[in-house]
């Protein structure tokens, strides 16, 4: 009889990292579908291209670092980073834009910090912010919803050949708000701001991501803490100002269903690696992201703020953890600091 000798416990639960990653990928599908429906094939092309680029980058770096390539690629984390970044990039993006973003996210924001689990910043958002700062024009060229170009145009855009692209683009709801805030008449004249219940088109994108996020919650891949605190804080910040001056400030509903609100709340801020650890910590972390989003959207220089807010709070996560250690069994009060 051959016996294996291992440390206890001898049985393990069903949860696996690969499965977690796969479920996150699955949950992005509704959002991807709506994006494709509204803006054409661009997003899908981006996603496929980003995945390929991410796997290549990850494999190359793992090889350089002398790590087992197949073993680490199999955890699926590179794919999640790639998909999340591709969904955030406009569907009009040319191939090199995606490549630069994904390459930076995988090589610099993830692997150079030590790979999965060691990165202090959300890799997808780090890549996104790099692109947003370096190529602001390309990164803000969204198409108007419901006027999806055909596959050929999308491919032309992806290959960077179409020079008449500016004729195609339109302002997103957040762009419009940013431009016309304070002018009630102008706001009323913006078609992008008047969808069924929030920004035109984007309400459906956010709804789709909400659906995917709720599925993740139901599958217990994420907990409610981060999405609830983030969205709650965003809405709570928006409410009094909107009541006070609705011509200057957008409604909570508009905030919740515009831009990357739902996508960020369920898919970006919940990235466990770069978030705070404890439950209280996660509540604080997510609430602060919500506040920052509202502040930057209302007063900042960029129309949306998810990436900045998340990165800033990634930076603060260790400090939040420092102050939110749980009280352990048998101890009268929680500990502070990191000891040593």
């Amino acid at each position: 009889m051959n016996l294996i000798s291992v440390t206890s416990p001898h049985t393990t639960g069903p949860s696996r990292t690969q499965r977690v990653m796969a479920q996150v990928l699955l949950a992005t599908l509704p959002g991807l579908a709506v994006l494709c429906g509204l803006f054409g094939w661009g997003s899908l092309i981006n996603v496929v291209w980003a995945c390929a680029a991410a796997l290549a980058c990850e494999a190359a770096v793992l090889r350089l670092r002398g790590k087992p390539v197949g073993f680490h690629l199999a955890d699926g984390s590179a794919l999640v980073t790639a998909v999340l970044l591709a969904l955030a990039i406009p569907p009009t993006a040319p191939w090199w834009l995606t490549l630069v973003g994904v390459g930076f996210a995988i090589i610099f924001a993830k692997q150079l910090y030590g790979g999965l689990g060691m990165n202090p910043f959300n890799p997808a958002m780090a890549g996104y912010v790099l692109l947003l700062i370096s190529f602001p024009v390309d990164m803000t060229r969204w198409l108007p919803p419901f006027e999806a170009p055909d596959l050929a145009t999308s491919l032309q855009l992806f290959l960077g050949r179409d020079h008449g692209i500016d004729a195609l683009t339109g302002a997103t709801p957040l762009d419009s708000l940013r431009t016309w805030a304070g002018d009630a008449a102008a706001l009323a004249a913006q078609p992008a701001l008047h969808g069924t219940f929030a920004g035109l088109g984007w309400e459906w994108v956010n709804l789709a991501f909400l659906a995917g996020g709720l599925w993740l919650l139901w599958r217990r891949v994420i907990t409610w803490h981060i999405p609830a605190a983030l969205l709650g804080a965003l809405a709570l910040c928006a409410l009094p100002f909107w009541l006070h001056d609705s011509a200057r400030f957008a409604s909570p509903l508009f905030h919740l269903f515009s831009g990357a609100a739902m996508f960020g709340a369920f898919f970006i801020a919940t990235d466990p690696v770069s978030a705070a650890t404890s439950r209280t910590g996660r509540l604080i972390y997510a609430a602060l992201i919500g506040v920052l989003i509202w502040v930057i959207r209302s007063f900042g220089g960029y129309p949306d703020a998810m990436a900045f807010a998340v990165l800033l709070l990634n930076l603060a996560a260790p400090t939040i953890d420092y102050y939110t250690q749980p009280r352990s069994y048998g101890h009268s009060k929680p500990k502070r600091g990191i000891g040593g």
């Binding site: 009889m1 051959n2 016996l3 294996i4 000798s5 291992v6 680490h72």
Partner: peptide, 18 residues
């Protein structure tokens, strides 16, 4: 434990067990 990528296991061959 040996760390990422390794299984914390050693194999014992018990010979005198039927």
């Amino acid at each position: 434990p040996d760390g990422v990528g390794k299984t914390p296991e050693r194999l014992i061959n018990v010979v005198n067990l039927r």
